[in-house]
Nucleic acid binder design. Sequence first.
DNA 1: CAGACTGTTTCGCA
DNA 2: CTGCGAAACAGTCT
Length: 282
Amino acid sequence: MPELPEVETIRRGLLPHVVGKCIAEVVSRHPKVGQGRLEDLVGTTVTAIQRYGKLLVLECGELACAIHLKMTGQLIWWGGDGSLVMGGHPEEGYLQREPHKHTRLVFTFTDSGRLFFNDQRIFGTVRVLPVREVQKLAFVAGLGPEPEQLTAEYLIERLQARKGTVLKSFLLDQTEVAGLGNIYADETCFRAGVLPDRRSGTITPDEAKRLVRAAQETIHLALAHQGSSERDYRTAIGEKGTYLSVANVYRRTGQPCRTCGAPIQRVVVGGRSTHFCSSCQH
DNA sequence: CAGACTGTTTCGCA
DNA sequence: CTGCGAAACAGTCT
């Protein structure tokens, strides 16, 4: 579910509420959620919150709590004074004082503030490990550059190294580019004017340059909208992201292209639902 | 009721 | 090593 803009939005939303707070209790409400010694977090203070691609890491002194939301994970903060921190309007299941049936983990802080890890499909992971080990995690060590740091030279080289794979699959590969997921890969391809089912090896240097800019602009715009809420995603205070209201192709099958008016097409590429404009992308 | 679909990652196989 | 397809799981939609 959450891609780079969603995870970064959650990180920014959590920062003012959680950093500097001491953890009083950690309760797992599902046997498969929580790896490592969760109880060791009790008594530690959250010193920083980092993000590596789509992985969020709460740093608690010498310990780290690495959280991956996968498809349907949420991190929702509730203020400790009994008042709802959340803005916006009440909504089914989300505004009720948690935990609810999808709440898998509850962090309670010494000031009574609470952080809920909700995850309908239970693909998400929460792992406690020494903070110095985080960089060594295969997932973290293997991450490619984020769109912000992406260069045309790097992309051209990697596209050739993976010339047999389709572009969409390449863009979703976190070891090549970190942070893109199904929504922003489609949006990036549209913005660059490139068809997502092209073989990576056929992408010209000019198209690679456009892809770099397109990825950066797409992520920037998504951050400004606090991400995309298809269904489960919420910010740290329970609000939806609004990017999909300005999306060019994602989930717009049959609707007119915002640029040329032609109907948006949907196909399956690499097993993933893929959207594009056959008139604007080549 | 069956089958397709869903934002991610990892694993096994060719 | 590259490149697929499936699996992990639960719920919604057609």
